[in-house]
Design a protein around this nucleic acid. Structure first.
Lengths: 342, 342
DNA sequence: ATGAAAGCGCTAACAG
DNA sequence: CTGTTAGCGCTTTCAT
């Protein structure tokens, strides 16, 4: 919380200075065409002379509109989200919205607090990547206040009432796993993330489908759940290396986990791509630059962000059509981490 | 811009429902102690029953306070800034501020527009990493409205009137260059960034001082200015490799440039650390994970963010002491990219 | 095309 | 402790 007093030049003063009424001045500020060129110029001149600054807060209060939107993501540390943020932010900006940012770090309480804050700030809409395992209720609160909500990257259980933009995680998991199978691998581990996330379950499902289709039995001991961070990736690969019958390939929950896995392998004196194949998910920029370059599945974070911003804008400006579900097709990007003879 | 009408439960309604006056209800909402437990509970109950949501916008308008602060950075793509953002955001959040985010992509026009937007939104303060080469005037506008401003990571020409948090770039440049000289290098290039940035000039100065102290003449042809991106780094290293008398080591403007340089070297079939030593600046998380791990200078982005948030909070809550300059001491982190026998 | 008056939802004096 | 009155800076009818 904060304090601060400050004296603004008000429209009233501008109007007086220009010799018109406040209402007229208001129309000029908003660029109304129903004002004679003459008076407009008088007012504009007065504004400049007095150093007038439009008070969007007061205007929003009076008009019951909003020029802000809330953006709630997990953390900015994961490049997937920062790339997504870039997309959202730029697109929203283009439409003249001001972005209020919130990060949950996957804490439901934090998310709840953020949603409340956004409500209190009268945001015009919210783009959110919900924390895993959170119920619809929390987010639904916004709907009750007729605040449009767009879900990105993560779904909500029975959240069909919301717009959703994401990538096809099942398909992505399948692509990754099929690729590994094609490379001759029969024992493939699935590293990182937690099963309470819908994304995790979807990627796992794709992984399972691919294995089944190849007639490979699923070995539950090859699922290693850890935080979806580099640390988690290192931890996971270490655990899997101690497996009595270790895998020859690993499919990682996301690229950040994969980076951790690659590091862990190197520390263990193994060469990723030769001794063990590694595949990630997201195709964040770093993945092409890592050593070895990471085979991964494109999830197009920036695209997701742009689409989300676009849909939210349409909702805010009155689009009341059916909830949209935009599921991007993932693409496999093969690099050295999964095939040395690449 | 946006539209949307929505009906809120007002304090008035809550008051009526609880059988008290609006003023009393207002006191309850704000947790005043001057209210009897009895009435407080009545009001609280009414709030819950009606689903009351506090309208911070209206409250801010009336009280002439603000619970928001603006955060203006270049781009979120560079991990240096996203780590900084993490620090700022978390600290601000802890104090109960809501963060309005803006990214300039180093465009002065964009920065100007953002500052206007922040003003119009009545932010209580602004943390900004100004675009290189921008004059004080733009930022000074905020000061005129008594909005505290804290500069981070980048200085402003004659901006002594503002608080500033950053790292000692001269010292950092010197550390990096001295290290390379100690490794036996006599021809060291300086790659990436542009000379219109104060950060560039400081790092270059440190670089020059180190060379001079070692009795090495400065060769202007070894300054390669490019965008401070991976692309820029690749471009710079390629150019420097074509130099008639190429350097044996490069000091990069920042880690992202260094990553580009490492990639460029690999593409050219050279082994970084053996054929050419590479040093970066920032010590972003990736730098430890790159191949080879990057020798770099810690710039403590998250720390900078936290301090900036702290100072801004103090300013907003009335601290009118002298402008503070907090210059963090950089630290050299030696890894393989500059010494194979590491 | 412009002005007068009312009021968005809240807080800030002051009474009492 | 609680209620009354005024008004933050703007937009919105509704006149004229």
């Amino acid at each position: 919380m904060t304090k601060k007093k400050r004296s603004r030049v008000t429209l009233e003063q501008v109007a007086k200075h220009a010799g018109v009424s406040r209402a007229t001045a208001s129309l000029v500020v908003r660029g109304s065409t129903a004002i004679s060129k003459e008076t407009r110029e008088k007012v504009l001149k007065a504004m400049k002379e007095l150093g007038y600054v439009y008070d969007r807060v007061a205007a929003n209060l009076r008009s019951q509109r909003s020029s802000t939107v809330g953006l709630i993501i997990t953390e900015i540390g994961n490049p997937f989200f920062s790339e997504l943020l870039v997309g959202v932010h730029e697109a929203l900006d283009k439409e003249g919205y001001t972005v209020i940012l919130g990060t949950t770090f996957d804490s439901p309480e934090k998310q709840d607090a953020l949603l409340s804050t956004m409500l209190e700030h009268r945001v015009g809409g919210v783009i959110i990547s919900p924390v895993p395992g959170c119920s619809v209720d929390m987010v639904e609160r916004l709907k009750q206040w007729e605040i449009p909500v767009v879900l990105i990257a993560r779904e909500l259980p029975s959240g069909e009432q919301f717009d959703y933009i994401g990538v096809d995680n099942v398909e992505g998991g399948r692509l990754a796993t099929e690729h590994l199978i094609q490379q001759g691998h029969r024992r493939v581990a699935f590293l990182g993330g937690f099963s309470n996330s819908s994304v995790w379950r979807d990627r796992k499902q794709g992984y399972c489908e691919a294995l089944e289709q190849a007639g490979i039995e699923i070995d539950e001991s090859l699922f290693i759940q850890t935080f979806a961070t580099r640390q988690g990736g290192m931890e996971a690969i270490k655990r899997v290396l101690q497996h009595p019958d270790p895998p020859t390939a690993v499919f990682c929950y996301n690229d950040v986990v994969a980076f951790g896995a690659l590091l862990g392998l190197k520390e263990a004196g193994m060469i990723p791509g030769r001794d063990i194949a590694v595949v990630g998910f997201d195709n964040i920029q770093e993945s092409a630059l890592f050593h070895p370059p990471l085979t991964t599945v494109s999830a197009f974070p920036e695209q997701i962000g742009i689409h989300a911003a676009d849909i939210l804008h349409r909702r805010i400006t009155g689009d009341t059509s059916e909830p949209k579900r935009l599921i991007l097709k993932p693409e496999l990007v093969v690099r050295e981490s999964s095939s040395l003879n690449f």
